[in-house]
């Protein structure tokens, strides 16, 4: 019996020594957006001048008389008008310094990973934002074995008012959906160890009963989005890259987890008889 316990303890120690939690740096979510701006320019310039002069002289003597008069009028007007309108578009890139705290939090909760701090991208040249290899080489992720690079695929706010069936009332819903792509990249070999897209969603619903004016709780929505994104991202990361388990999960496990995540979204109807 003692021998068995000793053996178990030794094996536990050995596995503990063999598994060292990898250090992962999580980047801020980068985004790229085409921005279109409308412009309308009107420039008008007008200049006018009027110059009038008159002179008159008369001379009179015993023998002669003369009279001389001169007048001149000079008017000048100049105007110009310029109008132009159109749209110009440009691509804006940047980093969304939100929504990643819960991703890091969920990774830490799992106990499989250690999280290191990544330096934010502050360079003016945003062209290099998506060049992860260059950023790794620049040493923006000190001490990290892997970088979880995230970029925003879609972000959409929705503010909807819908009638409630069977009642002469409305419900106002403010919701936000955020989808982000994540790539887990090895900082030494640049190998992609995991890649997935994760979604976060949150909503706030209020009841409109005619004349009442409601203010939607935006903070609650953002918090819900962040939390659900963190859960989804950490779950998928664990499925694809779990160094404590060694081999990856089987397809059946993944399918069952997908089914459970979709079934939780179904409505739970209670029928009383």
């Amino acid at each position: 019996m003692k021998l068995i316990i000793a053996g178990l303890l030794t094996s536990l120690c050995l596995t503990g020594a063999a598994f060292a939690a990898p250090k992962i740096a999580v980047t801020d979510l980068s985004y790229e957006e085409r921005v279109q701006e409308y412009f309308h320019v009107v420039a008008a310039h007008s200049k006018s001048s009027l110059k009038a002069s008159a002179s008159h002289s008369a001379r009179d003597s015993d023998f002669s008389s003369s009279e001389r008069g001169r007048s001149s009028l000079n008017a000048k007007s100049e105007s110009s008008y310029y109008e132009a309108e159109g749209t110009y578009s440009y691509i804006e890139r940047g980093e969304l310094r939100k929504f990643t705290a819960d991703v890091k939090g969920e990774m830490l909760k799992s106990g499989i990973y250690r999280v290191t701090t990544a330096k934010p991208y502050t360079a003016k040249n945003m062209e290099k934002l998506y060049d992860v290899i260059a950023r790794i080489k620049q040493g923006m992720y000190p001490g990290a074995d892997y970088v979880l690079f995230g970029s925003v695929s879609s972000i959409q706010w929705r503010d909807e008012i819908n009638p409630i069936q069977g009642a002469n009332k409305y419900s106002q819903t403010l919701s936000l959906e955020l989808v982000a792509d994540f790539n887990l990249i090895n900082t030494k070999t640049y190998e992609v160890k995991a890649a997935f897209s994760a979604m976060g969603e949150g909503q706030d619903a209020k009841f409109l009963t005619g004349n009442n004016r409601v203010v939607m709780n935006r903070g609650k929505v953002v918090s819900e989005v962040s939390k659900s994104l963190g859960l989804d991202a950490a779950r998928q990361l664990e499925e694809q890259f779990d160094p404590s388990r060694g081999a990856g999960t089987s397809r059946s496990t993944r399918e069952s987890s997908f089914k459970s995540s979709t079934s939780s979204m179904e409505e739970e109807v209670i029928i009383l008889r």
Partner: peptide, 27 residues
């Protein structure tokens, strides 16, 4: 369903057969 129903008097002809409950949009 009877536990959810409060009648003012006992109705002879009308009866609540079933009640469905669901939470939609938190309501």
């Amino acid at each position: 369903a009877a536990d959810k129903v409060e009648q003012l008097g006992q109705m002879r002809s009308l009866e609540v057969q079933s009640i469905r409950i669901v939470r939609r949009n938190d309501f």
